[in-house]
Design a protein around this nucleic acid. Sequence first.
DNA 1: TCATCCCTAAGAAATACACGTAGGCCAACC
DNA 2: GGTTGGCCTACGTGTATTTCTTAGGGATGA
Lengths: 219, 219
Amino acid sequence: MSKIRIFLVDDHQLVRDGIKALLISAEDLIILGEASSGKECFEKIALEPPDILILDISLPDTNGIEITKRITNEYPETRVLILSMYTNEDFIFNSVKAGARGYLPKNTSREELLSAIHAIYNGEEFFSDSISRIMLKSYVRKAKEDDLAPQRGPIPLTTREIEILKLFAEGFINKEISDKLDISIRTVETHKNHIMKKLELKSTVELIKYAIRNKIVEI
Amino acid sequence: MSKIRIFLVDDHQLVRDGIKALLISAEDLIILGEASSGKECFEKIALEPPDILILDISLPDTNGIEITKRITNEYPETRVLILSMYTNEDFIFNSVKAGARGYLPKNTSREELLSAIHAIYNGEEFFSDSISRIMLKSYVRKAKEDDLAPQRGPIPLTTREIEILKLFAEGFINKEISDKLDISIRTVETHKNHIMKKLELKSTVELIKYAIRNKIVEI
DNA sequence: TCATCCCTAAGAAATACACGTAGGCCAACC
DNA sequence: GGTTGGCCTACGTGTATTTCTTAGGGATGA
């Protein structure tokens, strides 16, 4: 059975050495090489793309997420494992979005790192417990936001105002709205002004976004 | 210390008895009552709302998600634990969205059920391993969709046009855009016209919606 | 009855939009 | 090596919208 070929990208020599020390005794792995920047990384892997790229988020010339995007596009056979000291939800989400197959914090154990490598090599995804918890929290938050968003602030508009906002956000121009509702175009304008003042919106753009956020119209 | 008050809702007598049998020996719990339908549930808990409502998704007259919504609104002190044979992602997402604090499959163990009850009673959330895995998968899928969605239709705009559309959809007026980009207002207007023509949009409203749909701006 | 909110409406100035036109630049093509 | 076409730039003109102010009439409730 052929060995799992690993490539390391981290801008700290010590970290790379540490990871190598952890992995050196694993017989089914082989470290193809290492790089301390995005540029160096792409230069080196062009010769022989690894099975797994272990990647730090913060790098001198770019960041792990951009590298992940390029890898996903240019080397779809290479799978990315993010190893980062940052466990913030945005980084995790964007890493996954960019195509990363796993995410570990830097204080992970040798066992977990090996588990991750094997899982990813076998086509699975791997997230450490702490990362999973963050992802779950985020999942719960998103689900709740999905529900709460429309109720965030009770809509302080009158029925007539909502009617006009709806028509406007659907794309009708003032004249069409005034015809539809059989009122003067001036009245339509006044209603819109009232809405903008009430909601403290500074532009019609925000008005439309408000209508979308509050599900007065579909996108 | 007062006992954790539990109420069971499931349309199968056997399941309710099974759960009761599992919980009866736990000294810090007390089963307040049980119901086999949504109607019966609300009639009974009106007298004494429980701390935790253990709820099946499928019920004869309604479903657990609707009950969860009502509970969340009408009895915010009562926390809902979903116990369901369905582990499909939509049910899980909608349960969380409706306000459920935990979700367990029906083949869960006594230990896990007790862990879930205690976690939820302490204000935490609890999802069994199998449910967590489904949520994580969903998280990953959503993150990927988030990335793929904008590629649905290739955006036929030039970089300058996208730049201007982005600023416009962020709420900047033409003058601000022309200042930012150090070009004439006329140019900004021309770009916007080109965009509208290319995309066959009839109003700025549609322009903004286009920008949102294609993730050029956030809502 | 008075205050308040809602719907209605208008005037005037500033701003934005629709549409046509056009020059400079650059890359691709024959 | 000129031509074509796309892109970015810009203006003129006429129309529409926005911004700000003012205001009457009806409903509602203290």
